[in-house]
Write a protein that binds this DNA or RNA. Sequence first.
DNA 1: TCTTGATCCCGTAGTGACTACGGGTTGCAG
DNA 2: CTGCAACCCGTAGTCACTACGGGATCAAGA
Lengths: 137, 137
Amino acid sequence: MPGRTGLTIGKLAGLSGVNLETIRYYERIGLMPEPGRTEGGHRLYEPAHRQRLAFIRRARELGFGIDGIRALLGLAEPHRRSCEEVRVIASDHLQDVRTKIADLVRLEAILAGTVERCRDTAAAPSCSVLDLLEAAA
Amino acid sequence: MPGRTGLTIGKLAGLSGVNLETIRYYERIGLMPEPGRTEGGHRLYEPAHRQRLAFIRRARELGFGIDGIRALLGLAEPHRRSCEEVRVIASDHLQDVRTKIADLVRLEAILAGTVERCRDTAAAPSCSVLDLLEAAA
DNA sequence: TCTTGATCCCGTAGTGACTACGGGTTGCAG
DNA sequence: CTGCAACCCGTAGTCACTACGGGATCAAGA
C-alpha cells in the first residue's frame, strides 16, 4: 500500500517556505493540483507538487502575478516549452518592473529633497513636507 | 439662505482628479469630513474640502498610505505643525521607497539577464526563463 | 409646469494575493 | 489510550479602491 508516502501540508510549507494557508489558497484557485489524501482527509504531497510549488514561489519572488504564473506553468509542460512565448511573458513583466522603478526613483528624488529641506529649516516657521502637499496644484 | 453654495461631488471629482466613488470612500473612512447637503441629500463641498482632497491626492501620489496621510493631516492643523514629526513620517516613507527600489533593481537585473539569454538561445532546446524558475533552490 | 436625462444617493460586492480565525477532526508520540 | 499538535473547511479580513444596481434628485429645455 503506497498510501504512506508524501509530505503533509505543514511539512511542505516548512520545506518550501510557503505559508500553509497560501498552499491551500493556491489549490483553491487551481494553481496547485489537488494532492492525494490520507484516509482521514489530510493532504499528502509528492515530489512533483514540491517542484511545482517551488516554481510558483520563485516566480512570485520575481514579481510575476498569478495569471502570469498560470501561463508560465502551462508553457513549462515538457512537450511544448515554447521559449518565445515564455520570453514574451517575462519581458512584459520586465517592462512593468522598469516602469515601477522609474516611478519610484522620481518619487524618491521628490521625497529626499523635501525631507532634506525640512531638516535644514528645523526651526523655521513652515514645514517643507507640508508645503509640498499643500502647494496649489 | 447660504445653502446654494458649494460643489457637487461630481464637480469636485472632476476638478480634483479623484474618482467620485473614492471621495465617498474617503468620507466613509474618516479621511474627508462630511460635507453639507442639499435638501434632497446631495453633498455640497466648500473650498476647504477641495484643499483637503488635494492634499490627500498629492500624498497618495507620493505613495503615502492612508494611515500616514491621516497622521500628516493631523500634523497639518494650523496650530501645532510640528515639522519634526512630519519629517519622521516622511523619512520613514522615504526609507520604504528606497527599499522597494533596491528590491526592484535586483529583480530587474535577474529578469533582464535571463530574458537576454533567452533571446540568444531562441532555437536552443531549453528556455533560460524556465531554467531560472525550475532551478533547484 | 412638466418631462427628460444626467447626476447623485446608499449599500454591497469585487479586485489581488494572501492571512487570520474558529470550531471541529485526525494523527501520532508517549 | 490519552493528550495535543497538526490538519480540516469555510468565512471574513486586509489595502485602497472600483463597480454595480436600483432608486431619488436636480437642472434645463419644451
